[in-house]
Write a protein that binds this DNA or RNA. Structure first.
Lengths: 110, 110
DNA sequence: CAGTATCCGGGAGGATACTG
DNA sequence: CAGTATCCTCCCGGATACTG
């Protein structure tokens, strides 16, 4: 049994999937590899996600310590930036491997 | 837009997650890295999965061309082996990266 | 700008029983 | 042994409207 953040997983692979699994989390992390992004910048990169879902996924990634949220203003209009934490950066090779395979599949079809 | 097996994905990373995402698929693939396994051998490796779910996940992995199903007997008791296809083997580095990160997280907590 | 609030549907996954 | 069949629950994620 593997434990992380109070959750139990039957396999080392499922622990990782518990953190980066789901429809959107890898996409978010993939876009954050190159540096911090603001909320609306992320939305532009991910045109098909809804505000609510993006917001929820960002929150769970933050709770898992993978990304951090930094607020630059106290009054509207707000400026908020999301970035990988040091812990989150340890995921970069894995995220890149996931992204690379997607590219590989599309390219090898031609 | 990235396409694979009739499905569309907004990002290269989500294409990969479409194939290996979900609660069990990476676990199945992880156990198949070392060689073919029979249905009940897989069940032993994954004690908490139900028969139905394991069966369904194996079927979708097979449809995506990642694993192959080989039947050795025509009459009960059946002998069926699951193994990675050549295409599925291109996923090994990614699966290992995912599994390694799970191990890393557990070890670095101590 | 960066989010909540509210409502909702679908599908992933579970439990149990049965079968070629 | 290797699965189906049936039924059911949960919650992820979507749509839309609203707010500090």
């Amino acid at each position: 049994m593997y434990k992380f953040k109070g959750k139990e997983y039957p396999c080392c692979a499922s622990l990782t999937m518990g953190v980066i699994g789901g429809k959107w989390k890898t996409v978010i992390l993939f876009h954050l590899i190159d540096g911090p992004l603001r909320y609306n910048e992320l939305r532009k990169e991910m045109p098909t996600v809804t505000e609510r879902t993006l917001s929820l996924q960002l929150k769970t990634l933050e709770e898992d310590g993978v990304i951090k949220r930094k607020v630059y203003t106290t009054k509207p209009p707000l400026k908020v930036e999301y970035s990988l934490t040091e812990f989150g950066k340890t995921l970069i090779p894995t995220i890149k491997s996931i992204a690379d395979w997607g590219v590989f599949v599309v390219n090898s079809k031609k």
